[in-house]
Computed example of a mutant assay.
Amino acid sequence: MVSDEEVIQIVQSYPAERRYALAAMQDMQHAFNYIPEKGLHCLAKHLKCGVAQLYSMATFYKALSLKPKGKHIIKICNGTACHIRGSVNLATGLKRELGIDPGETTEDGMFSVEMVNCLGSCALAPVMLVDGTYHNKLKLEDVPGIVERYRLADAEEGEAGND
């Protein structure tokens, strides 16, 4: 749950000028993996502008989301090189593994899958980016192992927190 204090801290770290709207929304996206509704309202009040103006910005930029995303964001490159080398198969493998299509988040909030136009690693196609880590020259059979690594890391994190 996103606290009011966290939102206020981000919003108030910027001068009350509209030119900082996008930067503030990017900070919210980074902090929460999405822009909460209360974040838009707080920012609108701070900038003395309408929420609709901020909403139009938030929906225009693909990097911003108004829906909560998973803890782990998986981006599948679907650029020409990756597409030719089977990026759609990776999406199929993730659907089999996670039960979601691109654009969706798992019910437990752990994973979100996105198809993106290009990740800039054409020579290493097909490519998947998970939490900023590139996975290159992938085959369909690599997908379960990659997902499992992130699940195990989360489980170890949880156990370390219980000590």
Rank of each mutant, 00 (worst) to 15 (best):
L129C: 15
S112C: 08
E97S: 14
L54K: 14
Y61R: 10
K48G: 14
R96L: 07
K62T: 11
K137V: 08
G86L: 07
D101F: 11
P126R: 12
V51E: 09
I100Q: 01
K45S: 02
A63K: 12
P144Y: 09
V11C: 03
V130I: 12
G79E: 15
Y20K: 05
V116R: 01
E107T: 00
N78Q: 14
K45M: 02
I84V: 13
K45V: 06
E141C: 08
K75T: 02
T92V: 07
A24G: 12
V51P: 00
K139R: 15
F111R: 01
H135V: 11
V143W: 05
H135Q: 13
P144F: 07
S56F: 09
L47V: 04
V113R: 06
L119V: 04
E107C: 01
Y34K: 07
T59S: 03
G70I: 15
L138G: 00
I35Q: 13
A16I: 11
Q26H: 08
Q12G: 03
L152T: 12
K38H: 03
H46W: 14
G132Y: 03
E114A: 08
Y55H: 04
H135I: 02
S87A: 03
R19C: 07
E104D: 06
L119S: 01
L90W: 10
I100M: 05
I146V: 06
K71Q: 12
L124T: 10
Y20Q: 10
M28N: 09
P102I: 00
G103W: 07
L54Y: 12
